[in-house]
Simulated assay, not measured.
Amino acid sequence: MTNCTNGGCACTPNQSIKCTVTNCANHCQDSAYCGLSTIQVGTHESNPTMVECTDCQSFQLK
């Protein structure tokens, strides 16, 4: 079986990507890690100056 994070497949935690957003489809529920091999980080601001200005653009609602 191919590892994936939704659709009934097992989540394989990527220990390089910590995550506590449990309502994301890519979150491994048994650990505080993301199941994706990479993520895309972006911003919703034209000139980001604080952590709150950044977004995980790989987020998918469960």
Rank of each mutant, 00 (worst) to 15 (best):
T2L: 12
T2I: 15
T2E: 13
N3Q: 03
N3S: 10
N3M: 09
C4W: 09
G7F: 10
G7E: 11
G7V: 10
G8T: 10
G8P: 07
A10Y: 07
A10M: 01
C11W: 00
T12F: 08
T12S: 12
P13W: 04
P13T: 05
P13V: 03
N14G: 05
N14K: 04
N14H: 06
Q15Y: 05
S16F: 04
I17D: 02
I17E: 05
I17T: 08
I17K: 03
I17P: 07
I17M: 05
K18P: 14
C19K: 09
C19I: 00
T20L: 09
V21Q: 14
V21C: 05
V21W: 02
V21H: 03
T22F: 11
T22R: 15
N23C: 03
N23G: 01
N23D: 15
C24V: 06
A25K: 09
A25I: 04
A25P: 02
A25E: 06
N26L: 02
N26Q: 13
N26E: 10
H27L: 08
C28A: 08
Q29M: 11
D30K: 10
D30F: 07
D30R: 04
D30Q: 03
A32I: 00
A32W: 03
A32C: 07
Y33I: 14
Y33E: 09
Y33N: 15
C34Q: 08
C34A: 08
C34R: 04
C34N: 06
G35V: 04
G35T: 14
L36N: 11
L36W: 02
S37Q: 14
S37A: 14
S37D: 13
T38I: 06
I39S: 01
Q40K: 13
V41S: 05
V41C: 11
G42D: 03
T43R: 06
E45T: 13
E45G: 00
S46C: 11
S46W: 07
S46E: 14
N47G: 11
P48G: 08
P48I: 02
T49H: 06
T49V: 06
T49K: 09
M50F: 08
M50A: 13
V51F: 07
V51Y: 10
V51T: 11
C53H: 15
C53V: 00
C53K: 12
D55E: 13
D55P: 00
D55N: 10
D55Q: 10
C56H: 01
C56L: 04
C56E: 01
C56T: 04
Q57M: 11
Q57L: 15
S58D: 02
S58V: 02
Q60L: 08
Q60A: 08
Q60E: 12
L61A: 10
L61G: 07
K62L: 14
K62P: 02
K62E: 14
K62F: 12
K62R: 14
